[in-house]
């Protein structure tokens, strides 16, 4: 059965790793739903947050195939219960319509979104939350025909676990090199 998995990958900061990671998904015919790449809290280590729908058997295979790439430090997979997660979104809406239709502002407030810019032509709205929160806001506004642009980030997350597996791995490797 397919479920949504979030895969966290940590790699050395070397050019071309992203290509190698995405190629693993392509080969196994798994679509990447979202992808976020950024520097991690460990200097020199990059963090990739990838979501995809697949079976648990497949996500285990993906994890191992990703870890097989030389410059990948660690790959672990999680379900939504295992993580704190967020996505960000930005919407560009018509100021004119917003002023004409009070419903627009009501929806923005109702969804806990923020208006970050208002000028005579357009206004910018920012919303952070889960995928569902963001899509609901988008759909509600879109129904009123005000949305000119919509952008949604990939998922970012931190784990709920009390253990820090990357730190453990790096400490273990440090020990190996010393001995």
């Amino acid at each position: 059965m397919n479920s949504l998995y979030t895969i966290l990958v940590y790699s050395e900061n070397i050019a071309g790793v992203l290509n190698q990671i995405t190629a693993v998904f392509t080969r196994r015919q798994v679509n990447i739903e979202s992808l976020n790449v950024c520097a991690s809290s460990t200097p020199g280590v990059h963090k990739y947050t990838i979501t995809c729908y697949c079976t648990e058997e497949m996500v285990k295979i993906l994890k191992k195939q990703i870890e097989k790439r030389i410059d990948v430090l660690q790959a672990r997979y999680y379900t939504d219960e295992d993580i704190f997660m967020l996505e960000s979104s930005l919407l560009k809406i018509s100021t004119q319509t917003m002023l004409e239709n009070p419903e627009v502002c009501r929806i923005v407030r109702h969804h806990g979104a923020r208006i970050v810019e208002v000028n005579p032509t357009y206004s910018a709205v920012e919303k952070t939350g889960t995928t569902e929160d963001i899509l609901e806001l988008y759909e509600d506004l879109n129904r009123l025909g005000v949305v000119r642009q919509f952008a949604r980030s990939g998922r970012i997350c931190i784990t709920r676990d009390t253990r820090e597996y990357l730190d453990e791995y790096l400490a273990e490797r440090e020990k190996t090199v010393e001995s």
Binding site: S11, E12, I70, D71, V72, L73, L170, R173, T176, V177
Partner: peptide
């Protein structure tokens, strides 16, 4: 000359 005998990300 260098001798690499350890790569942190590779076991």
């Amino acid at each position: 000359p260098e001798k690499v005998g350890f790569v942190r990300s590779y076991v």
